[in-house]
Design a protein around this nucleic acid. Sequence first.
DNA 1: CGCGATCTTGAGGCAATTCAAAACTAGTGG
DNA 2: CCACTAGTTTTGAATTGCCTCAAGATCGCG
Lengths: 249, 249
Amino acid sequence: MAKRRKSPVEIITTDAHMCSLDLRLKILSRLPFFRDLPSKAIEKINTQFVEKGYQPGAYLYFSDEPGRNIYVLAEGRARLLRSTAAGKQVMLDLLTSGDFFGALGSVEQPYTETAQAQSDICVLVTSVSDFRAVLKNYPGVALQVLDVLAARLQAAHDSIHLLSSASAETRIAHTLLKLSRKVGKSVDEGLLIDTPLGRDELAEMTGVTSETASRVISQFQKDGLIASGRQWVALTNKAALEELLDSER
Amino acid sequence: MAKRRKSPVEIITTDAHMCSLDLRLKILSRLPFFRDLPSKAIEKINTQFVEKGYQPGAYLYFSDEPGRNIYVLAEGRARLLRSTAAGKQVMLDLLTSGDFFGALGSVEQPYTETAQAQSDICVLVTSVSDFRAVLKNYPGVALQVLDVLAARLQAAHDSIHLLSSASAETRIAHTLLKLSRKVGKSVDEGLLIDTPLGRDELAEMTGVTSETASRVISQFQKDGLIASGRQWVALTNKAALEELLDSER
DNA sequence: CGCGATCTTGAGGCAATTCAAAACTAGTGG
DNA sequence: CCACTAGTTTTGAATTGCCTCAAGATCGCG
C-alpha cells in the first residue's frame, strides 16, 4: 500500500497581484489567438488590458451579475462553476494559463457561470466591447477564437455524453485522464495532476457525491491505477485507466 | 382523462430534394449571421452552397468520418447525436431552420457527432475552407457565428448542470420547456412541441430510459401539466411546469 | 381487421445517495 | 518535538431513485 505523503502539488505563490509588463506581453503573445499577429499589434492590444490578482478561493464574478468583461488567465488555476439551489456545485471547466473566459456573447448579458480562483492567479481583463473591436479588426483572431469555442463545445458535449450514459467509476476515470492531459506533470509518484484536487472537487466535476468519489479513488488506488493523498492525485498506470474506458459497455 | 388523438404534429412533406433558388436566398438572408450583409454579398455566398435533401431517419454524416463540410438547415428538423458503445443514443441538440452544424473547427478533424434527419429536410452544404473564407472576408459575420457558438456553449452547460444535479422528473420538465421555446406552436391541445417526439427521443435528450420517460410523462398528464399521445407532447399548463423547476431543491 | 410499433405498467435489483461516525492528515502553537 | 485542532478522507449501513426485464395495452396504418 502506498504511503501517504505531503502533496506534491507545488503551491506557486507568485506575487500575483502584480504581473510584470514583461509577463503580460509574453502571455498575450503566446495566446493561441494572438500568436499570428505582428508584435506591434500585440503591444497595442496590450494597452487595452488591465491586470488583476486574486487569492485562492476568491471569486472573479458571480453568475447573474451583469457580464461586462472578458478575462484571460495569465498565471495560476481557476474554475468555472454553477451552483444549484441546494448549494451543490457543478464545475464546468478548469482554466489554466492562456484560457479566456467571461462574457463571451455579444450583448451585455449576465454571466451564466461563476468564476473562482483555485490558486493565486493573475488575470488580464478587458471590456466586451473592446475585445470585440479587436476581433473585428483582426479577422484571423476571430477565427482562432471561434476554434477555441468550437473545441469547448466538443468538450461540453463529451461531458453530456458521459453524464447520460456512463457509471460513476467511468466518469471519474475519464475525468482523471482529461485532467492529466491538461495539467499533467511527471513526478516521482507518477503523472501528477498538477492542481489542488480534493475528493469534493472531483465530485463536482463528475456529478457524483464526494463519498462516491472517495470510494472510487480508494478502489483505483487498491488496483494500482493511481496514487493519491490529500488534495492530489497522480496516475501510476495510465494505460490501465484507459483500458477501463474501452471495456465499459 | 384526456382522449388520445392523431398527432397534431404536421408532417410537412415538401419536395425537399429541391429547395428552389428563391428559398435558398430567403434562408441564407434570414440566417442570423448573414442578416447584416448587402444582398449582393449574399448572392455571391449563395453560389458556394450546394443544396441537398434527406428523408426522415437518414444520416447526413457519422461521427469519426472526416469532417469536411458545414451544413445549414434550410427546412425541417434534424438532430445531433452520439451513440455509446452499448448502442444507446444521446441527443445533443435539436436543429431547426437556420441552424448551422457540421465541421465547426478549423482544421479537417473528424466529426464528433452524428447528424440525422428527423423529418424531410433541405440543407445547404459548403466546405469548411469556403465557409472560413467567408468569415475572413466579412468580420461581422464571424462575430455573429461566434455568438451562436457562445449561446450553444451556454446551452450545453445548462445540460451538464441538470444532468449532474437534477432528478429525472426535473430534467424532463426542463427539456419540455426548452423544446417549447424552440419549436412551440399554439394549437387546440395547448402549446404543442412541433416536432416528432417519442418517449425514446425524450429519453435520449434527458439521459434516462424510455420507460422512465414514459412514467414521468404519464404523471405529468395526470397532473394536468401536459397533453400527449404517440410521438407528440403539448404543454397545457406551462406555468405549473415552471414552478416544478423552482420548487426543486 | 390485424399487424407492427409505440407506449404503459409492474416487480425486482442495483448503483449511488444519504446520514453518520470514525480515522487520518497537515499545519499550528505550546 | 509533540499534542492539538480543523479540515479532509474513509468506511459503514440504510435508503431510494432509476434501470432492467418482461408482459400487456394501445394506437395508427395498410
